[in-house]
Design a protein around this nucleic acid. Structure first.
Lengths: 318, 318
DNA sequence: CCAATTAATACTCATTTCGAGTATATATAT
DNA sequence: ATATATATACTCGAAATGAGTATTAATTGG
């Protein structure tokens, strides 16, 4: 019963912040290799929990102290962590199981070797704030149509058709980030697919690729965050201590990749009692200054599920 | 950078079925030891993904083929898998990280050494179908009040007070199963707390204990399933191919631990197009036979988030 | 002081969804 | 027929949603 299975555990973190209306993620990028999420091994001898291990080496490596963190998913796929091409820095014999985390912060300091990049660099099809990204109709859907057609049998074709419809059909569900990425991966529309399978790349490679399965972990992080937004006041982890309501709205929009209806957004925030005014005003370059608000921590006790159920998607810009 | 961290991965599965209005979970119980979820090691040499490893040995051990499965969480806490008392069957040197899964099935066959038990045996405070469980007012709340009072400092006390309120205060949120279990654990109201910390048990030990951290995994499973119910048609994984609408309602009620309003439940099911009638009728012992329905798989394509957002909690029984 | 700029508010309004209820009709076993 | 169950029909008010239109307010730059 206890045939022992030795693997090593890797911890990866999608550390997220929002700056000037862009959701940013902290990546490690040395020399010419792909961007990576900060990652490192879990050392069971020194840490009582996975999360404390994470906090510890993230602190060391990126000089960050994480605020809110959340475990995302544990990936153990052979071939997606250790690509066919061979890897450096890991024993090729030991299998790596990677546990992904989401962390939110408002600190933007950069450590050596790391930099902040907008997450839509990796997922350009996920930003619908200005309009539906043109690449969906011009590139993605035609390629996916071909993917459906190339299915080995009718049953697979039907399955693929459904997935294409759910992921990119009408009725955009901003939470299905991972499903969409996985579909694009399987359809050979992202570079990682060719890298992992050792095939020659053909056709368009969408978005900026990442090391190992890090883009998948980031997709999981975005999906989780977009979902959580609606029933937990997590945005505030990303805001300065005080902020204007419009800044708050812009942050939510940035994360969700959608435009919201201003009046309704405020009605919601007000009704939920998520914020309280500080009599102070913002100091804009031009125009009327807005009042500065702060997060009301008390709501956590008062309401069962305080969040910003978005929904009010506007067709045109704000 | 690659100081190697050797651990072994354990896979545990909460395999759930519903039988005669009780949610059941498959447990392994030999001799006098605590009930355990089926669990086993992940063998990286033989399996490409964690999930295929899980399906494989669950198949071997329990002769079950899992249908729907979902990863829950990865626990790596020292001390909660390998209790102070020492354990058998695992090298005490290797740290075990356990990945929990939820699996749904309608098959009720039992393999040797395993048996189906109602999950409310482990969480008696979670079943509100008949009425608010008396133990909450008579045992839990008084004990938690003491837990708040015994806090080392005022700040901790305030934190605890909030948690007690969120978990057991008015406004029952059926999804907070894990939060409640963790609170009871920390407050020393479940046996596992004493076992893990090596202290002498004192006070009431609520519910049936389980091996290792299996009750925590089961709590996670219940929470996840209760949540998922609302936006994905997962109940049908637990139903026979055909069923009456009342049977469906009873299954949802069993899982959610709540009573629902019959007319509204039907309105919902009908509106969502989740089921379709087969002209056939059920054969009850007495009384009017009900029509048999089947799940309309097509909704998965049609609607973005088909589920049974419950809510219609009735105060008294059906 | 005036125009331009930007934000904040005030209200409206129709549509859905929710939660809870009352009242009936229907099928079967005995 | 009666008891036992189930299935439907409707109603009704309260709340939440989604999308507007129209006004008001505070600054900066002339």
């Amino acid at each position: 019963m206890s045939k022992d299975s030795i693997v090593s555990i890797g911890l990866s973190a999608a550390i997220v912040a929002v700056e000037s209306e862009q959701p940013m993620v902290l990546v490690v990028s040395h020399d010419g290799s792909d961007d990576a999420l900060p990652f490192g091994p879990f050392d069971p001898a020194h840490h009582r929990t996975l999360e404390s291990g994470l906090r510890n080496w993230v602190g060391e490596q990126t000089r960050f102290d994480l605020g809110y963190t959340e475990q995302l998913y544990t990936f153990g796929d052979k071939g997606r962590h250790t690509p066919a091409g061979g890897d450096k820095g890991h024993q090729s014999s030991a299998r790596v199981v990677s546990v992904g985390y989401l962390a939110l912060t408002r600190r933007m300091k950069e450590a050596p070797e790391t930099q902040w990049r907008g997450w839509y660099n990796y997922f350009p099809w996920e930003d619908w704030r200005d309009s539906k990204p043109a690449m969906i109709d011009s590139v993605i859907l035609p390629a996916l149509k071909k993917f459906v057609k190339d299915a080995p049998d009718a049953e697979t074709a039907e399955l693929r058709r459904e997935r294409v419809n759910v992921c990119f059909g009408d009725g955009w569900d901003e939470e299905r980030v991972l499903e969409r990425y996985e579909l694009l991966y399987e359809a050979g529309l992202v570079e990682e697919f060719y890298r992992d399978s050792g095939q020659a790349s053909k056709g368009p490679a969408l978005g900026t690729p990442m090391l190992f399965d890090h883009r998948r972990i980031l997709a999981t992080a975005i999906a989780r965050l977009r979902g959580k937004l609606k029933y937990r006041p997590v945005v505030f982890e990303l805001m300065a201590p005080t902020f204007t309501l419009l800044e708050l709205q812009r942050a939510v929009e940035a994360l969700a990749g959608l435009r919201l209806h201003k009046q309704n957004f405020r009605r919601l925030v007000a009704e939920q009692g998520l914020v309280e005014g500080t009599g102070k005003l913002s100091a804009p370059a031009r125009g009327r200054p807005a009042e500065l608000f702060r997060f009301r921590r008390e709501v956590l006790r008062e309401r069962p599920a305080p969040g910003l159920r978005l929904g009010g998607r506007r067709t045109r810009s704000a």
